[in-house]
Amino acid sequence: MWKAWLINLKKTKISLLWLVGLVAVFLTTTGFIQDNIEDNLHLLNKETKTLITEKNNRYFQTKEQPQITVITVKRLNKLTPKALDHSKRSVFIVVGQKGKKRNVQIFSTKDLHGAFTADTRANILRAEVNKLRSNNKNTFNEGLRFVFRACATRVDQQYQYALDKYDLTSAEQNKISHPHSVALPIALALAFLIMGIVYVLKKFGHRNISSPK
């Protein structure tokens, strides 16, 4: 009787271990371990939520398991997320909005500070600043998806993951790396235009002075 009880206990233990294992695999593959979306203002559309969920699900399958969380809150300042100090390998994109004003900020945990310097974060946000300020929900979400994909690209490069369809293209990365590449030709053109106007004014002014009365 005692022997039979031990056998049944062993079988029960094995069954429980299998059950725990299956639950762990389910949670890992479906991304139920952590919620990466806190849309308190209901600003995110379906396409944006799908991007956030699918990319984070891929991260759940890696050794490091980095995470990128998107949060929307009804305020413009004090956007630092509460989970920042006690998290690791995490990036937070926080959207603060009050009335028609909006503030988008990127935060990263200490172990990712090298990938998300102040200049890097500023360049990412500057690349799509007009869309991020738009009152049109779809346009705003386009800008937010770009910011998310830019953050994902930096994370993938940091951990040497293979880039996938959720990351930025080379052209989009250049847009961030060289934020003034478009402004420079315009500035040069304006400089040449001003020089031309000054030359013409000087030439006609000289003729007027030299002409007989």
Rank of each mutant, 00 (worst) to 15 (best):
W2T: 13
L6Q: 11
I7F: 08
L16S: 08
L17W: 09
L17G: 07
L17C: 06
W18H: 11
V20I: 11
L22G: 13
L22Q: 11
L22M: 13
V25Y: 06
V25M: 10
T28L: 07
T29N: 13
T29S: 12
I33C: 02
I37D: 02
L41S: 04
N45I: 06
T50M: 13
N56I: 01
F60D: 01
E64M: 14
P66T: 04
V73K: 05
N77A: 15
P81W: 01
P81A: 04
K82F: 07
A83W: 00
H86T: 10
R89D: 03
R102S: 02
R102L: 05
F107A: 01
T109A: 07
A115T: 12
V129D: 14
N130R: 15
R133H: 13
R145I: 01
V147K: 00
V147G: 00
V147D: 00
C151W: 00
A152T: 04
T153D: 05
V155A: 05
V155I: 15
Y161P: 02
D164I: 04
D164F: 03
Y166G: 00
D167R: 02
L168T: 01
S170C: 13
A171Q: 14
P179Y: 03
P185E: 08
M195C: 15
L201G: 11
H206I: 15
